[in-house]
Protein backbone atom coordinates (compact mmCIF):
# COMPACT_ATOMS: atom_id res chain seq x y z
CA UNK A 1 0.00 0.00 0.00
CA UNK A 2 1.78 3.12 -1.18
CA UNK A 3 0.51 6.10 0.66
CA UNK A 4 3.87 7.71 1.36
CA UNK A 5 3.12 10.52 -1.08
CA UNK A 6 0.12 11.53 0.97
CA UNK A 7 2.13 12.59 3.99
CA UNK A 8 3.90 15.93 4.32
CA UNK A 9 7.55 15.54 3.35
CA UNK A 10 8.75 16.59 6.79
CA UNK A 11 7.08 13.72 8.59
CA UNK A 12 9.35 10.85 9.61
CA UNK A 13 9.37 8.14 6.97
CA UNK A 14 10.79 5.23 8.90
CA UNK A 15 7.89 2.99 9.79
CA UNK A 16 7.73 -0.55 10.96
CA UNK A 17 4.28 -1.23 9.61
CA UNK A 18 2.93 0.43 6.46
CA UNK A 19 -0.24 1.92 7.91
CA UNK A 20 0.29 1.78 11.64
CA UNK A 21 0.91 5.52 11.94
CA UNK A 22 -2.64 6.18 10.87
CA UNK A 23 -4.13 5.38 14.22
CA UNK A 24 -4.26 7.51 17.35
CA UNK A 25 -0.86 8.01 18.90
CA UNK A 26 -2.32 7.08 22.27
CA UNK A 27 -3.39 3.67 21.04
CA UNK A 28 -0.03 2.69 19.64
CA UNK A 29 2.33 0.27 21.27
CA UNK A 30 5.91 0.17 20.07
CA UNK A 31 6.56 -3.30 21.42
CA UNK A 32 3.54 -4.71 19.62
CA UNK A 33 4.48 -3.03 16.36
CA UNK A 34 8.03 -4.36 16.55
CA UNK A 35 6.76 -7.81 17.39
CA UNK A 36 4.28 -7.80 14.51
CA UNK A 37 6.95 -6.54 12.12
CA UNK A 38 9.37 -9.28 13.12
CA UNK A 39 6.95 -12.15 13.53
CA UNK A 40 4.62 -11.83 10.59
CA UNK A 41 6.96 -13.24 7.90
CA UNK A 42 7.84 -16.16 10.15
CA UNK A 43 4.17 -16.77 10.86
CA UNK A 44 3.52 -17.02 7.14
CA UNK A 45 6.38 -19.50 6.75
CA UNK A 46 4.88 -21.61 9.53
CA UNK A 47 1.54 -21.49 7.77
CA UNK A 48 3.07 -22.73 4.53
CA UNK A 49 4.93 -25.44 6.47
CA UNK A 50 1.68 -26.62 8.07
CA UNK A 51 -0.02 -26.62 4.69
CA UNK A 52 2.62 -28.80 3.06
CA UNK A 53 3.31 -31.14 5.94
CA UNK A 54 -0.34 -32.11 6.51
CA UNK A 55 -0.22 -35.59 5.01
CA UNK A 56 2.62 -36.70 7.27
CA UNK A 57 2.50 -34.59 10.42
CA UNK A 58 -0.04 -32.50 12.30
CA UNK A 59 -1.09 -29.59 10.13
CA UNK A 60 -3.18 -29.24 7.02
CA UNK A 61 -5.11 -26.52 5.26
CA UNK A 62 -7.35 -25.59 8.16
CA UNK A 63 -4.47 -25.14 10.58
CA UNK A 64 -2.43 -23.29 7.95
CA UNK A 65 -5.30 -20.90 7.33
CA UNK A 66 -5.72 -20.29 11.04
CA UNK A 67 -2.04 -19.55 11.53
CA UNK A 68 -1.98 -17.15 8.59
CA UNK A 69 -5.12 -15.58 10.03
CA UNK A 70 -3.44 -15.19 13.40
CA UNK A 71 -0.66 -13.26 11.70
CA UNK A 72 -3.27 -10.88 10.37
CA UNK A 73 -4.89 -10.58 13.78
CA UNK A 74 -1.51 -9.56 15.12
CA UNK A 75 -1.13 -6.89 12.44
CA UNK A 76 -4.63 -5.66 13.21
CA UNK A 77 -3.92 -5.44 16.93
CA UNK A 78 -0.63 -3.66 16.39
CA UNK A 79 -1.60 -1.32 13.59
CA UNK A 80 -5.35 -0.79 13.58
CA UNK A 81 -7.94 -1.35 10.84
CA UNK A 82 -5.92 0.47 8.17
CA UNK A 83 -2.96 -1.75 8.87
CA UNK A 84 -5.17 -4.78 8.37
CA UNK A 85 -6.11 -3.51 4.93
CA UNK A 86 -2.48 -2.82 4.15
CA UNK A 87 -1.47 -6.30 5.27
CA UNK A 88 -3.86 -8.16 2.96
CA UNK A 89 -3.09 -8.31 -0.73
CA UNK A 90 -6.67 -9.25 -1.68
CA UNK A 91 -10.08 -8.35 -0.26
CA UNK A 92 -11.63 -11.11 1.87
CA UNK A 93 -14.42 -11.72 -0.65
CA UNK A 94 -11.86 -12.49 -3.33
CA UNK A 95 -9.92 -14.79 -1.00
CA UNK A 96 -13.11 -16.69 -0.21
CA UNK A 97 -13.94 -16.86 -3.89
CA UNK A 98 -10.52 -18.11 -4.94
CA UNK A 99 -10.60 -20.64 -2.13
CA UNK A 100 -14.01 -21.92 -3.16
CA UNK A 101 -12.87 -22.01 -6.78
CA UNK A 102 -9.82 -24.11 -5.89
CA UNK A 103 -11.83 -26.49 -3.74
CA UNK A 104 -14.68 -26.89 -6.22
CA UNK A 105 -12.29 -26.94 -9.18
CA UNK A 106 -10.31 -29.73 -7.52
CA UNK A 107 -13.54 -31.67 -6.98
CA UNK A 108 -14.60 -31.11 -10.59
CA UNK A 109 -11.19 -31.99 -12.04
CA UNK A 110 -11.46 -35.32 -10.28
CA UNK A 111 -14.70 -35.99 -12.15
CA UNK A 112 -13.17 -35.05 -15.49
CA UNK A 113 -9.87 -36.86 -15.08
CA UNK A 114 -10.69 -39.91 -12.99
CA UNK A 115 -14.47 -40.01 -13.31
CA UNK A 116 -14.90 -39.58 -9.59
CA UNK A 117 -15.68 -36.53 -7.50
CA UNK A 118 -12.64 -35.32 -5.53
CA UNK A 119 -10.41 -38.09 -6.90
CA UNK A 120 -6.78 -37.42 -6.01
CA UNK A 121 -3.35 -38.60 -7.01
CA UNK A 122 0.17 -38.53 -5.56
CA UNK A 123 3.17 -37.55 -7.63
CA UNK A 124 6.64 -38.73 -6.59
CA UNK A 125 9.38 -36.35 -7.60
CA UNK A 126 13.14 -36.66 -7.22
CA UNK A 127 14.04 -33.15 -6.25
CA UNK A 128 17.83 -33.36 -6.31
CA UNK A 129 19.41 -32.54 -2.97
CA UNK A 130 15.97 -32.30 -1.33
CA UNK A 131 15.63 -36.01 -1.91
CA UNK A 132 12.49 -37.87 -2.75
CA UNK A 133 9.35 -35.69 -2.51
CA UNK A 134 5.77 -36.87 -2.64
CA UNK A 135 3.25 -34.27 -3.76
CA UNK A 136 -0.40 -35.18 -3.25
CA UNK A 137 -2.83 -33.42 -5.58
CA UNK A 138 -4.98 -32.78 -2.52
CA UNK A 139 -2.56 -29.95 -1.77
CA UNK A 140 -4.71 -27.81 -4.08
CA UNK A 141 -7.72 -28.69 -1.99
CA UNK A 142 -5.86 -27.85 1.21
CA UNK A 143 -4.76 -24.53 -0.23
CA UNK A 144 -8.38 -23.71 -1.03
CA UNK A 145 -9.43 -24.56 2.51
CA UNK A 146 -6.62 -22.40 3.90
CA UNK A 147 -7.63 -19.43 1.74
CA UNK A 148 -11.24 -19.73 2.87
CA UNK A 149 -10.18 -19.76 6.51
CA UNK A 150 -8.00 -16.67 5.95
CA UNK A 151 -10.89 -14.97 4.18
CA UNK A 152 -13.17 -15.80 7.07
CA UNK A 153 -10.71 -14.39 9.61
CA UNK A 154 -10.37 -11.23 7.55
CA UNK A 155 -14.12 -10.84 7.28
CA UNK A 156 -14.48 -11.15 11.03
CA UNK A 157 -11.66 -8.69 11.70
CA UNK A 158 -12.82 -6.09 9.25
CA UNK A 159 -16.43 -6.18 10.38
CA UNK A 160 -15.36 -5.88 14.01
CA UNK A 161 -13.29 -2.83 13.22
CA UNK A 162 -16.09 -1.12 11.38
CA UNK A 163 -17.51 0.79 14.31
CA UNK A 164 -14.31 2.62 15.08
CA UNK A 165 -14.35 5.90 13.24
CA UNK A 166 -10.75 6.63 12.36
CA UNK A 167 -9.07 9.97 12.35
CA UNK A 168 -9.51 10.35 8.60
CA UNK A 169 -13.18 9.47 8.72
CA UNK A 170 -13.67 12.20 11.26
CA UNK A 171 -11.92 14.63 8.93
CA UNK A 172 -14.10 13.61 6.03
CA UNK A 173 -17.37 13.93 7.84
CA UNK A 174 -16.66 17.38 9.20
Amino acid sequence: MTDAHRRPAAAPRARLLPAADRQDAGERSLQLEVLARLAHPSILVVAVYLLVVGTHHPGGGFAAGLVAGLGLVLRRLAGGPKELTAATPLPPGLLLGIGLLLVAGYAGTGVLVAGELLAGAVWSVDAGFLGHVEIPSALVFELGVALIVVGLTLDVLRTLGVDEPSEEDAEETT
Partner: peptide, 28 residues
Protein backbone atom coordinates in the same frame (compact mmCIF):
# COMPACT_ATOMS: atom_id res chain seq x y z
CA UNK B 1 -1.61 -44.85 -1.13
CA UNK B 2 -3.13 -41.42 -0.59
CA UNK B 3 0.14 -39.73 0.28
CA UNK B 4 1.05 -40.13 3.90
CA UNK B 5 0.55 -41.60 7.34
CA UNK B 6 -1.40 -38.73 8.93
CA UNK B 7 -4.83 -40.34 8.84
CA UNK B 8 -6.58 -37.48 10.68
CA UNK B 9 -5.62 -35.06 7.98
CA UNK B 10 -6.31 -37.52 5.18
CA UNK B 11 -9.82 -37.94 6.48
CA UNK B 12 -10.31 -34.21 5.99
CA UNK B 13 -8.63 -33.90 2.61
CA UNK B 14 -9.23 -37.31 1.03
CA UNK B 15 -11.56 -39.83 2.61
CA UNK B 16 -14.24 -37.42 3.72
CA UNK B 17 -13.27 -34.58 1.39
CA UNK B 18 -16.87 -34.19 0.30
CA UNK B 19 -17.78 -33.25 3.87
CA UNK B 20 -14.96 -30.75 3.92
CA UNK B 21 -16.12 -29.34 0.62
CA UNK B 22 -19.57 -28.77 2.10
CA UNK B 23 -18.19 -27.34 5.32
CA UNK B 24 -15.87 -24.82 3.71
CA UNK B 25 -18.66 -23.75 1.38
CA UNK B 26 -20.91 -23.10 4.36
CA UNK B 27 -18.02 -21.29 6.01
CA UNK B 28 -17.53 -19.02 3.01
Amino acid sequence: AEGGPNVTNLIISEFRALDTLGEVTVLA
